[in-house]
Amino acid sequence: METQTRQAIDAFQNGFQQLSGLAVTYAFSVLGAIILLLIGYFLAGVIERALKGAIGRVPGFDQTLAQFFAKIGRYVVLALFIVMVLGQFGVQTASIIAAIGAVGLAVGLALQGTLQNIAAGLMLLALRPLRVGEYVEVGTVKGTVEDIGLFATRLRTIEGVYVLAPNSTLWSEPVYNFNRNKVRRNDLIIGIGYDDDIDLAQKTMLDLAAKDKRILRDPAPSASVSELGASSVNVTLRYWTSASDYLATRFDMTKAAKLAFDEKGISIPYPQQEIVYREVGKQGAG
């Protein structure tokens, strides 16, 4: 019994001595690792704030894109210090970097669509074919832009419907931006009867354009016969307005033209079809 107790005590003492030796051996490594992590965490924050401030001061640079690059800088600094900490314990950093590269490649292949959205989001933020508050049409997607993210863009349709479009979709199609240019042209087409006075109709439309202050004088409005239709002579009033006044002016001018034509006795015919009846003579019995 005494022999077993003595063996247990000797084993405990040997284990304690080994642990003490390991503690002494790695104490400085652990302390150095903690210091490196603290320095890395502090430096990463400094780098992130510095990048965000520097990029944010660039005229016309999107804030979302500035924040994204600042985060990238932070993570790069943290990754470098983690590799340095692992090197303190004798870990082969070359193999770690290779493993990280392999994992990154696998993740990239698995998230190929997501990465495409991120790349497209960066291009949208950099080139800015659309901005918050602008009305755009991109393929089947149309609406007012409310937010441009790194993965998707949020829009609101005229009917108030919520739309979340992937950035890759918006980047791969032509973007029709209805607010980017300051002025827009509208062609107001109204059909009149073939028996009506064309010159009077043109003058009436030009007079309406002259009275509306939202319609620009340069280029000047014009009225012309654009088509001889099946049931009407189509008269077109072409004018320019600011992009913000486009819809309101279009609606008001359409109403004003109808009222003015009614007042001057100019008809706006419905589609009609002319039917001719011919009497066929009866043939006598032979």
Rank of each mutant, 00 (worst) to 15 (best):
E137P: 00
A98T: 13
G45L: 09
G104R: 07
P166H: 04
A33Q: 03
Q17A: 14
A126N: 03
Q92T: 06
A106Q: 05
T64V: 08
G60V: 04
I158R: 15
Y75D: 07
Q283E: 13
F178P: 01
G87K: 08
A27D: 07
Q63G: 11
L127N: 07
I215M: 03
I118N: 01
S242R: 15
A230K: 11
Q112E: 04
S226W: 01
A165M: 01
G90N: 08
V235F: 01
T254H: 08
F261H: 03
S224D: 13
D62L: 01
I192Y: 00
A209T: 10
G113I: 12
E227A: 12
V83G: 00
A98V: 11
Y26D: 08
D197I: 06
T140V: 10
L38K: 07
R128G: 01
R250M: 12
S226Y: 08
R238W: 03
I268G: 04
G53K: 13
A120E: 02
D212T: 06
G121W: 02
R131H: 03
S226K: 06
L164C: 00
T25Y: 09
Q63L: 10
A165C: 04
A152S: 14
T153S: 10
V103G: 07
K213D: 13
L259T: 13
I82C: 04
V280C: 06
A260I: 08
L247R: 12
V58F: 10
A257D: 01
I35Y: 10
A11Y: 02
A44D: 03
R154E: 06
L125H: 02
K142L: 03
D147L: 09
K258Q: 08
L206F: 08
A260W: 03
E274A: 10
L111C: 11
V233T: 15
G265I: 11
L43Q: 03
R49H: 04
E134A: 06
L247H: 13
L38D: 00
A210P: 05
Q4W: 05
L216I: 05
Q88Y: 11
T241H: 07
Q67T: 15
A70P: 03
G265K: 09
A285V: 12
Q112A: 10
V235L: 03
D196L: 05
M123V: 13
T140P: 00
L247K: 12
G265N: 09
Q67N: 15
D245Y: 02
F42C: 03
Y75F: 10
M84G: 01
F81N: 02
P59K: 10
D218P: 00
V83T: 05
L19M: 11
R185K: 12
I189H: 01
R180N: 05
G113E: 08
Y246W: 05
V58P: 05
R49W: 07
V77I: 14
I82V: 15
R278S: 14
V276H: 11
Q116D: 06
V132H: 03
V132P: 05
D62N: 14
I215W: 00
S168V: 02
L130D: 02
F261P: 04
E2D: 13
L80V: 15
L111M: 12
V233Q: 08
Y277P: 00
